[in-house]
Design a binder for these strands. Sequence first.
DNA 1: AATTATTGCGCAAACGTTTGTTTTTATTGT
DNA 2: ACAATAAAAACAAACGTTTGCGCAATAATT
Lengths: 340, 340
Amino acid sequence: MQQKSNIVDIAEKSGFSITTVSRVLNGKADKYRISKATQQKIKSTAEELNYVPNEFARNLRTGRSKTIALIVPSLKNPFFAEMASFINLEARKYDYITLIGDSDDDINIEKEEIIQLSSRNIDGMIIVPCGEEWDHLLKKQEEGLPLVCVDRYFEDLDLSFVSSNNYDGAYSASKYLIEQGHKTVACIQGVKYSTPNRQRVKGFEDAMADFGITSYTVSGDAFSEQNGYLETKLLLQQKIRPTAIFAFSNTIAMGCLKALKEEKVKIPGDISLITFDDNPYLNYIEPPLTRISQPVEDICKIAVKILFSRIVENDKTVKRVLLKTKLKVKESVKSIPVLS
Amino acid sequence: MQQKSNIVDIAEKSGFSITTVSRVLNGKADKYRISKATQQKIKSTAEELNYVPNEFARNLRTGRSKTIALIVPSLKNPFFAEMASFINLEARKYDYITLIGDSDDDINIEKEEIIQLSSRNIDGMIIVPCGEEWDHLLKKQEEGLPLVCVDRYFEDLDLSFVSSNNYDGAYSASKYLIEQGHKTVACIQGVKYSTPNRQRVKGFEDAMADFGITSYTVSGDAFSEQNGYLETKLLLQQKIRPTAIFAFSNTIAMGCLKALKEEKVKIPGDISLITFDDNPYLNYIEPPLTRISQPVEDICKIAVKILFSRIVENDKTVKRVLLKTKLKVKESVKSIPVLS
DNA sequence: AATTATTGCGCAAACGTTTGTTTTTATTGT
DNA sequence: ACAATAAAAACAAACGTTTGCGCAATAATT
């Protein structure tokens, strides 16, 4: 079992000082005018000894960890799992590693995670904040932690974010429903105070108003299957059933499906369904769901980019980015003929 | 901007030595007979200063990182995303953090990841090995890295693993198909030489043999949607179409669904489908898929347990654990009446 | 009163780096 | 030939912990 070698071993074996070895191995050789010959010799003995720098010592000294953190509400939600995958991938390109935290959509766990992760001296953090609190985030940023919110965010705060244009997305979905002749529409929302949710509600309501639809409802309070299930159950109890349901997330849509199935309500025959978020499975559901797809990959790429412009170049300007969503028309929305 | 406080600040403010503070904060107070009063005071000033230990310094000193690594073939696969979520959660209970790596089912990336993660001085690793190579894993273990394989593993190696009992799972699925009257069955496999796949093939073939079914096929070579799609397309070309398809993963099943849909082949009317892996969406597909569900949570819990018995108690015995799968009967398998 | 045991705590080294400063050696200009 | 400058490399401190050992003060025992 080959012992781990360190910079001291290299220094001894090569006959140079620790300092010189360190500088060569860090690419600062030229800056300190270390001769080519020396560089060569040090590099080769490093190779020979199978040297791998001890990141801890390095980080302790420099204060930099080459690590970022990502906190999501739940890795089990495919939407966030996909995000984690993309962000991890992007960070690698900067030679950074990603620590993933799961807040379970609980603000206390979120705070806990932030503390825990901070003790690992992360150089930056990407977060999908789960609550309506932001003080702890602002505080972290003031302490000097580069921070970017994705998906969920807070407007009017000095805190960069990248998200979909939820307003437009919801508006276009609503408009589509209306264009298909729906006049009684229910939307099932997620976490009420989250900005994406508010934007979606706004988009939905504005569309209703713009097209003169007055018979609509907004209910629900979580981006969860259970919420979708319960609210759908309730909607089906109403005297006047909506002809279309707009689910604000793939998880909510799953709950709708469950309830509709239980009650033997056919899509789109009896009721139409449209949802936010994309997921391969949505194509194999019967019928495939019409949806508002978010550019998850782009969101992640841009978020990482912003984060690193802050980490590396200390760019402190606040970036607020909203990306276009895409309406993917499938077969879950019925076209209702207009009586004229 | 509140500066980060360290153990020295606490020492100064509380009036005790660094040593004493360290001991109190590490719960070693009693061992070193530090008075309750002192303990109290130190703890409260630590609280007051908002102290968070610097893990790097700690790890540099102790050589332990309180970090484990998890390498999966792809976080985008819901099966592995779920695993990541569970393992992360379990590790937290030990006060450990999980670094997640994505090998993209490429053995070279896997090796690369292992090196990268090693420089972070991880205390242990859980891996879903993606290839047929294990030398690099054995080498790591010999170097002293606690290692546990999950899902995929290698038999007859001194390498602990936790997985489903894939043989039994496949056998019972096959038996079920046969009991439902199917006499021409096709299975679409995943990565050929992976142990789970081999076990599943064996379970499938044994069941066929045990029940005297001779008309069956085994094809495919990846746990991917594409593989499922292509193989299904091919199956549908055969002169004698199978009456049932057994997909070896949820991703493969997704490919089957795509192909069957394209070809307008109805499930279970025209062909029956059964799959490995569970996923909430499988319930909302039309028809809901009958499947072999794996105890993912248990697999993860046990894997973490084994890993930590190695990390903490240096238990070097090799554990080989296979967990029961569960047949979940839904509506995707047709019962074919026996002609007698 | 002297010895020993116990309690409560601190000294200082060590972990493996990075880096501001300094020292040594080589080169140049006059 | 001699300073002055440039090139090459080394010294030593620092990052924030943990921990083996040691020491003083008090209590218990003779």
